[in-house]
Nucleic acid binder design. Sequence first.
RNA 1: GGUCUAGUAGCUCAGUUGGAUAGAGCAACAGCCUUCUAAGCUGUGGGUCACAGGUUCGAAUCCUGUCUAGAUCACCA
Length: 705
Amino acid sequence: MDIEFKLKKTVLEAIEKLYRQTVDEKSVQIQKTRKDFEGDFTLVVFPLLRVSKKPPEQTAEEIGNYLKENVSEIHEYNVIKGFLNLSFDKSFWISYLESVAQDDHFGFISNKENPKTILIEYSSPNTNKPLHLGHVRNNLLGYSVAKLLETQGDKVYKVNLVNDRGIHICKSMLAWQKWGDINSYLDWCINNTDEIVEKIRTLVKQNIFNYCKRIVLSYKNGNIGRSIDENYKQEVIGLYEKTKSNKNPINQLVNILENHEIYLKDSKNYKLLKRRIDKQKRELEFRNEKIEPKTSGKKGDHLVGDFYVKFDQEYKKQIGSLISEGLTEDEAKQTAPLILEAQKMLIDWEAGDKKTRELWKKMNSWVLEGFDVTYKKLGVDFDKVYFESDTYKLGKKLVLEGLEKGMFFKKEDGSVWADLTDEGLDQKILLRSDGTSVYMTQDLGTAHQRFSDYNATEAIYVVGNEQNYHFQVLKIVLAKLGFEWAENLYHLSYGMVELPEGKMKSREGTVVDADDLLEEMTRTADEMSRELGKLDDFSNEERKKIIETIGLGALKYFILKVDPKKTMTFDPKESIDFNGNTGPFIQYTYARIQSLIKKAHSNGLDIPVGLNSKINISGKELQLIKLIHTYPEVLAEAATDYSPAQIANYIYDLAKEFNQFYHDHPILSESNRSISEFRLYLSKEVSKIIKSSMGLLGIQVPERM
RNA sequence: GGUCUAGUAGCUCAGUUGGAUAGAGCAACAGCCUUCUAAGCUGUGGGUCACAGGUUCGAAUCCUGUCUAGAUCACCA
């Protein structure tokens, strides 16, 4: 039986015996004793004064006495103000640790009686541009929450809904049709260098610390790194000379450089890009063809994204000239020829026009191939992928049925609306006057389809909080249509990701691209490990695997440790920090323990099957066992709150606690064999929990690093 | 303007069924590698928990108001 439950029960019993009264279970507050006090569990007695009619100290004493006599595990107790602190016998904790070790799925619930069937939708990309940092948060959250829910014994299906139709897709298609020949495209790439410079600025900024460090280190060693821009190098070295008398010259240097634009002079990446484009142009100039992923050397999603940007640029131009002809902004936006063409294309698409469909198929397949690469690198997957192009018609059908039954109404122009004024909301459009679907239409259809596909009890949508209103409406409309499961829709509404400079804006080139980001993280992990000389004796293959694990771990942890509901700031510089509260810190702790176990093994010291319950354990060791004790509880809470952040915080506490223990407790060199074995045993359990909990975040742990 | 969310150390974040002296990391400064991985550990400084009221034995946490920031209220998705 759970020990906290047992305590609670005995306290209720004590009150009955001592004061001849009963109290609400809620008034019995048992919590973990804070670190700075003696004890394992604490009973807060204030709420009980009502029935004891005695001062807090006396009440606590009386209950403490009763508990000590009736709960065998309690070793002693103390009273401070209104707090009754209970200490358990150390052997209790040691045997608890043994029970944890014997449990192969510690903290996880298996064989649940009535498991729920939960659908979780995440990712939901649009097929008109590549994935960016915002999608990364979405994907990591969705994947991790799915794992969290599984720990509670429920059946979970991960689904993706690809938004592959709609006006935005038509925009990319149209732009490709108009300006997709190889020469125009390559010209456009070159003229767009401003955006590329912005991108490089972000990249270099992410990398500035390691970059400067490398220059300074090679300078100190008397080497000259050849790949580094000469002017830039001279400036860095000059600044270093000025700051080197400081304690941390490199940090000082970085601080100076951050407020200094000189890193932009390192335009190596920029030049390379430009040269590559030029070369391509020369090679392809005489081919009268349309650009494709193959010829452009770009991933399909990136190529299509370029045309989305191109559309926007041309559209803006048209709006501008219409406004100068005297139209208002709104008028201009609605009547610009390009947007009309795009709208026409959407109608053609819905009508099943063969040419439009073919173009659409081709470009979509490019994008989807690109997404698959990104998903794979991110380590996320799905049980089923839905396509909006398959489901939107079902939505249309539902709306028309609802219209017939009088649940919705039609306006004069033919558009269909839901009246939600009774719910305190506005009217909401469900079908356009030209009969085409809107976002809401297809979401109605998809919801219906997936519930029947899986006979699900619950559906979770991992979607940003900018769509709170949409989901509020979705639930109401589904309920109006008479679906009972409508109330089991849950919108896991996560906060936006912002950069230190502010919000990401695709038009200003401040979007952090997912593929770039992943590459950058691995590169940083590589540089770090080289500087520290950590992986020198590894083969290239092993090395590659480890740095990928670390780079990805850093990114995932950085994003997941923040409460999903909150808007978060993504500072590239902090994200590549591998010290402190970071993924690599935890991975390192794990690797350390593995190395310890290996070494023990080769010294002939094996992890014992059982423990000697009489050994004396230190406060830190006790602390660790108690922390392990809370793991199942943490899992349950994280699952009900859909919050991987709670797991992340827990793992950090555990790793930190372990490192402190590791620092001042000899393990292999401990002469008392029982103690040495106990410490090894404890270490192994800690590492098992690290591995299991990191797995829930989708983060792998390396055996060595 | 209506609705919703947030505001905790210089920065990024923890801290909920209301409990003891509000915690970490980064940044700064001072230390610890002939000893199990120093991607580690220890210490110092840093706070009017946005502000003002209220509820009570007790409030960062609950309520009300104010200020600030963001989201949303589209025949965009």
